[in-house]
Design a protein around this nucleic acid. Structure first.
Lengths: 207, 207
DNA sequence: CTCTTTGCATTGCAGTCGTAACGTAATACA
DNA sequence: TGTATTACGTTACGACTGCAATGCAAAGAG
């Protein structure tokens, strides 16, 4: 048998190039040759490792979502043993913003590109829906725990609040990337919203 | 002189086709020939009315943003003479969501596509920034008037609140289009947020 | 009627796209 | 030391892109 190569590693090399191209030039600029030259390899090699462009895109997308998950759990670890629920939620949501963190802006651009892509591709939309639901459930869990610990008003509905917080975060991220919304403005808006969420009495809504 | 044709009308015919293609197949599917066949004309005619593809896109974008403005002012008119500020803001923001309103989902898809496009094109981002700032200023004005009328808490900061409300609306719209968020959920989230905004006492934030 | 301007169609070109086919150098096993 | 198998590189093809050039019918001006 001939030379053995770590396939996974080669694929990840290419996937990283896909992300770099998508982040800097947009999703429509992602072509086999373009990605290959960005990765410093030949187009033929890309073809060797991915049976089609779609397969390449899917692999790159999965790799990115795994990375985001890892970054988030790492970020939660840095908060120590018993973080305040509000700070925890704040950290998680802030991690989703394309802020200073190196690579975060690129990841955000790619995510935005994929959202636009999904808007006209129902099957992709289903994938996004699943990952979005997972994130929402995660935030809702944090809120539930905060309520049972008495650190958030009991009148707060964990599910709809989580959905709203995620939507706000998404919207802030989109405006940062597409309309130059300053990072500090976005962070401040998120903070203000969390102040409201954790402090307000929700029991008198819709009287 | 030969046959005279209404140039503006022909351009708008083509621009409408651009929007239809972008809404159903995504921005990257917008090509001269594709648009032409969607509009039921030849590619040559498209070329006759637009000196380049970029010019065509710019015209279509401007036409769309004008349409949105018109739809919004019409919607405000339907609220009558002295609408409650909360209802007014609610109506304006709801009008930005891709809901049942015919064509609204398509407009939303196009808007999302352009946001993704802007994320990698600084000059387009500046255009979006301007239109976004205008919308924010409009909402902030409504909030200011609500405060001076005693219909919203004086402790509320009109500018940052307007920015947050718009971000939430954008985020909800993005999730509706890219992750199948149900319209009623989005509308409910918007309503709940407005309840919070107009009812809560903001004076004790960040003690 | 003639001419000239306008509206639009057709064609061709250079470039990029995804993909298939083929060629070849390298290497671990027999 | 073959030799089969893996890892590429190269080339070619048909489809598509934006765009320039050209052709031509129609119609108001003289």
């Amino acid at each position: 048998m001939p030379k053995r190569v770590d396939h996974q590693q080669q694929r990840e090399l290419i996937a990283a190039a896909v992300m770099r191209v998508a982040a800097t030039q947009g999703l429509e600029a992602v072509s086999l040759r373009h990605v290959a030259s960005e990765a410093g390899v030949t187009a033929g090699m890309v073809q060797h490792y991915f049976s089609s462009k779609d397969a390449m895109m899917k692999f790159a997308m999965d790799a990115a979502s795994t990375r985001i998950g890892e970054r988030m759990s790492m970020l939660i670890d840095t908060l120590g043993e018993q973080p305040a629920p509000k700070e925890l939620v704040n950290a998680v949501l802030t991690a989703l913003l394309p802020t200073s963190e190196p690579g975060a802006a690129d990841d955000g651009r790619v995510a935005l590109a994929f959202m636009a892509y999904a808007a006209t591709r129902p099957t992709v939309a289903e994938d996004l829906e699943r990952s979005n639901a997972g994130m929402r459930e995660f935030i809702a869990g944090l809120l539930r725990q905060a309520i049972s610990d008495g650190q958030a008003p009991a009148s707060l509905d964990p599910d709809s609040t989580a959905a709203a917080l995620l939507a706000l975060t998404d919207g802030l991220a989109v405006q940062m990337l597409s309309s130059n919304l300053p990072a500090e403005t976005a962070i401040a808006a998120l903070g203000a919203q969390l102040d409201l969420t954790f402090a307000a009495d929700h029991s008198q809504e819709h009287p």
